[in-house]
Every structure is written in C-alpha cells, then in structure tokens.
Design a protein around this nucleic acid. Structure first.
Length: 274
DNA sequence: AAGTAGGGCAACCGCGTCGCC
DNA sequence: TGGCGACGCGGTTGCCCTACT
C-alpha cells in the first residue's frame, strides 16, 4: 500500500503512541504551537509523520477534550445533526464542545447507528425509530425552505433542510447551573390542525417528553462562533405562519443527576404547515 | 482455562481543497 | 494558470479488551 508522501521521507513510527511521545508532542506544541505540522515531528524529536502528530493532537492531546461516554443530550444532538448534515462529522463535532469528529464518528458507527436501526425495526413511536434514512441525510423532498444553504458545495451535496429552528446553547454547559436547550422540529411530515394531536418525536427512548402547552422556544440561539455557517435558520417564519405555540418537547433531565443543576431541554417546535 | 466472536476506539489511508509560487 | 505541498476530512483498518462458549 502506498505510503502518504509526508511519511515517505523518513522512517516513521506507526501504531499507538507511547506516553513519552505524547509528552514530547505536548511539550513542543504548548511552547511553540504546532505551526506547520510537517515540521512538528522533526522539531519535537518524534519519529512520526506530521499527519500522525496532527491527528494525535486533535483527537487525544488537545486541551479541553471531553473524555468518556456521550451524554444522552449529546447523543440526541448527534442524531439530529446527522439527519441534517449527513456524514459530515467535523461539522457535527463543532456543535459538541470537547468532542472530536473522530469520536463522534466512532460513536455513531458503534452505538447510535445500532440503536437507531433496532428502534426502527421495532417501529417504536416517538423513539429512535422515527429517524428515517439511517446513515444518510434526509431527502430533498423533506426539505424545509426555512433553512438556507449558502454554500455551493452544500447544495451539491443536497443538504436537506428539515428544520425551522435549531437552537443549541452548549456553551452554557460550561457553567455549572444552566440548562442546555436543543430545539428540534418533530420529524413528521405534516402538522395536524389540532395541536393536541402533535406527534412527539424523541430521539431518546424512555425520557419524559410531555410538557405544558406554553413551553416552547425556550432555547437560546447559538453563537456566531459556534453556529454552522451553512445553516441559516429563519425562525420568523413560525410567526408568519401563526404556528400554535404548544410545542412537542423532549425534556432530558440528566444534568440534575450529575451536578444538582438545571434540567436539560430538548425542544421540538412543530413543522411549518405545508 | 482456553479459544473465539464481537464491540469500541485509536490510528491510518486516500482524496479533495486551499494557498503559495 | 498549472504544479506542488500542506492541511482537513471521511472512510476504513486493525488492535485491544471483554463477554461468551
């Protein structure tokens, strides 16, 4: 098999990184920054190629990485973002502070995909089963005109536009006592006139997602730094269409278990009437 | 206790894109 | 404008651990 160009030039070590190598890389980057990755291994005294150093740093050594298993709200967010973005793991990972694209990708392939498939097989209402097109973004027929794609590349990839509002405030997770709000639309094709008959979509099986009729739109818009530039959400359209305020909502109250903190909300506004 | 299968995850590979010359 | 190198990304591989037989 052909070796990558940057690895041809010198005899490079491959495979798992030793603690000594990690330490060398950390020490070098913490002092000098990575600069050009191709020069990092030489300057840091490592028998690795630049790509390997970059990967190790980004996926494992970089400060601020969140280790450990994914929380239910993170899983819910990944599922929904995957519906929107498809296998664009780097884009998905940007909405998950402390997570890398590799981590998200592995989690999807090892855990979420499996759960989604099993739920789909069981045809569980209001559960993971309602996520169609596992492994693929939803089709353009399901597109929601409220979501504007401003990248030509995205248009070429037929990025679906299913949502009226995606509000993620994950920055608040860094504070000890603030809710994490994730507003997703219900993944149903039509909205009945009777708001009481809304189908609740929940990516997580077994959580209480029945909330009061006035609990809606309580999330916070994502910051410009964290926002996916490809997603422009037109939340005004809800008002223009006089969408009834009762919102299907998934309330995940797991933060309380961990730190006696505020509940985490995953909030699904209704679809825009066709 | 030994062998095997499966899952999880770190790391590698190849390709596309971008910037520089 | 074309070539080249660097970087970033997604797909894939392979190792290690654990559960099962």
């Amino acid at each position: 098999m052909r070796r990558h160009s940057c690895c041809n030039k010198q005899k490079v070590k491959r495979g798992l990184w030793s603690p000594e190598e990690d330490e060398k890389l950390i020490n070098y980057i913490s002092i000098h920054g990575h600069g050009s990755w191709t020069s990092v291994p030489k300057l840091a005294g490592l028998q690795r190629c630049g790509k390997s150093c970059r990967l190790r740093w980004i996926n494992y050594l970089r400060p601020g990485l969140k280790r450990g298993s994914f929380s239910p709200q993170e899983a819910a967010l990944i599922i929904e973002l995957h519906r929107i973005l498809g296998n664009r793991w780097s884009q998905i990972a940007k909405h998950l502070p402390g997570r890398t694209d590799n981590e998200v990708k592995n989690f999807w392939h090892t855990s979420l995909k499996k759960k989604l498939k099993s739920s789909h097989a069981l045809n569980l209402p209001g559960a993971l089963a309602t996520c169609p097109d596992i492994g693929h973004p939803i089709s353009s027929e399901d597109a929601n005109p409220n979501l504007i794609i401003n990248s030509q590349q995205d248009q070429q990839h037929h990025i679906p536009t299913p949502i009226t509002m995606l509000q993620v405030d994950l920055e608040l997770q860094h504070n000890n006592c603030c809710p994490t709000m994730v507003n997703f639309p219900p993944l149903i094709p039509a909205v009945p006139s009777d708001s009481s008959s809304y189908v609740t979509w929940s990516p997580l099986v077994g959580y209480d997602h029945q909330l009061g009729p006035n609990q809606h739109d309580i999330g916070h818009p994502i910051s410009s730094e964290d926002a996916n530039p490809n997603l422009i959400i037109n939340s005004q359209q809800d008002q223009q269409h006089h969408i009834p305020t009762p919102i299907t909502m998934l309330q995940v109250d797991l933060e309380l278990q961990h730190n006696n903190c505020c509940p985490t909300m995953v909030n699904f506004p209704p679809l825009i009437p066709a």
